[in-house]
Amino acid sequence: MSIDRATVAKIASLARIQMSDEELDRMEPELNGILKWVEQLGEVDTSAVEPMTAVIPNTLRLRADVVDADPKTGGSRRDDVLANAPVAEHGFFGVPKVIE
């Protein structure tokens, strides 16, 4: 299946990557090359195969419901959370005004 330039533009927009016309021109044949190559997977009969879920047999561990049990994954660290923000005001992150 080959994709056209409009599709590349649509996917780029879905991925929130602005693309110039030149970039789209460059990307289109590259993507088609890669997609054509990965499509050889269609040759493999997988009708009786389950998709991989866990790479190494292992089950999901659940944690206890304790607040801030480990400071590395707990809350109450607003300064750390905001430390790298391009815009932080009054304890909030700032973004361009959104109209819902």
């Binding site: 590349v8 780029a12 991925a15 993507l31 890669i34 269609g42 997988t46 389950e50 998709p51 991989m52």
Partner: peptide, 28 residues
């Protein structure tokens, strides 16, 4: 960017089974 676009494409509506799911089966 190239990989994000490919990744976005193979997960997008209508292509998930043909690409992502098939690849995970091949992985099995």
């Amino acid at each position: 960017k190239r990989r994000i676009i490919i990744g976005t494409y193979v997960l997008s509506a209508g292509f998930y089974d043909a690409y992502y799911n098939q690849a995970q089966k091949v992985r099995t």
